[in-house]
């Protein structure tokens, strides 16, 4: 028996606990949460209302069907496809480059690497994730482009390949890290079950672990692609400012994000179509990432394997 009468002390302290305070907490937290919700609503409202302003002035049909984006010309044309194609060229190259490497790294780290190797490699990947995108852009235009030009002279100074590759490098850590997390959270007992049936380590990795982690892996890829769509700095520096809807990846282009940067760092007369086109492009960008979000949730549900 202790020297203190704990029950007595508890009884004494019971009256001090403010029951009212406890009830106030959910309310306070709700208010805090509302701030982020309000911010989102505010941004959405701005985007929608200002985009509608744009469509008051310019043709709705032209925006969605034209492949020419010439906002500065004497007869301006606002066809979003030019910018969308620009973004897609960069994003597709980035994805094709980043997914195998990211996934390969994840498999290595999760299934094959020793603890020591993991301790060295993981931090390096984190460093890669922390490099400012402006540095990546600089790297793209000053090293990657000249290198590519030495291999194939047909590549112009601004092109989709350099930008795509570097955006790819930037998103590798995201894919690698999240996929590795997903794979590591597959319990070892599952692997043992496979090995116990006479499967090799490789078979176990590809037939049991990957399928089990697929929802996490796909989520990581979708996240990385969203990031690539919204990437601004690298494409501004290395991709160019020539909007076109062609499939040519060796010449200059312009992405949606690149256009927005170009206009906001220059002069766009308030109230002009040019000004409002920013919001229309922003809205399109938002829709893209929103759709990616939906896809990611649908895929997760479809492939979810519960533990």
């Amino acid at each position: 028996m202790s020297n203190y009468n704990i029950q007595e002390m508890i009884q004494k302290n019971k009256s001090n606990k403010g029951a009212g305070f406890e009830k106030l907490i959910p309310v306070i937290l709700l208010i805090i949460t509302s701030i982020s919700v309000l911010a989102t609503i505010g941004i959405l409202y701005t985007l929608i209302s200002q985009s509608l302003e744009f469509f008051n002035r310019e043709s709705f049909v032209q925006f969605f069907t034209s492949a020419t984006w010439q906002p500065y010309s004497s007869e301006p044309e606002f066809g979003i496809w030019a910018l969308v194609m620009g973004t897609l060229k960069v994003v597709v190259i980035a994805t094709i480059f980043a997914v195998p490497i990211g996934l390969g790294a994840a498999i290595y780290l999760s299934e094959y690497a020793s603890e020591r190797a993991k301790k060295i490699i993981k931090p390096i990947l984190e460093v890669l994730a922390g490099i400012p995108t402006v540095v990546y852009g600089f790297f793209a235009i000053n090293f990657v482009t000249p290198f590519l030009q030495s291999l194939y002279s047909g590549i112009s100074l601004y092109n989709a390949v350099s930008a795509g590759l570097v955006v790819g490098i930037m998103i590798i850590p995201m894919i690698a890290s999240l996929s590795e997390d997903a794979m590591s959270s597959v319990p070892n007992s599952t692997r043992e079950g496979s090995l116990g049936l006479g499967a090799t380590k490789l078979e176990t990795t590809f037939k049991v672990v990957l399928p089990a982690a697929i929802s996490g892996i796909i989520a990581s890829v979708v996240l990385a692609v969203s990031r690539a769509i919204g990437e601004t700095m690298i494409v501004s520096i290395a991709a160019g400012s020539t909007p076109n809807a062609s499939l040519d990846i060796t010449s200059s282009l312009q992405t949606m994000t690149g256009f927005i940067v170009q206009i906001t760092s220059g002069d766009a007369a308030y109230g002009s179509s040019l000004y409002f086109s920013l919001f229309a492009v922003g809205m399109t960008l938002f829709l893209f990432t929103f759709v990616m979000n939906i896809i990611s949730q649908w895929v997760s549900k479809r492939f979810r394997e519960e533990y």
Binding site: S189, E192, G193, S194, G196, A212, E305, E306, Y307
Partner: peptide, 9 residues
């Protein structure tokens, strides 16, 4: 094994 470990399939 001790803890049932069916694959998530």
């Amino acid at each position: 094994f001790q803890k049932p470990n069916p694959f998530p399939k």
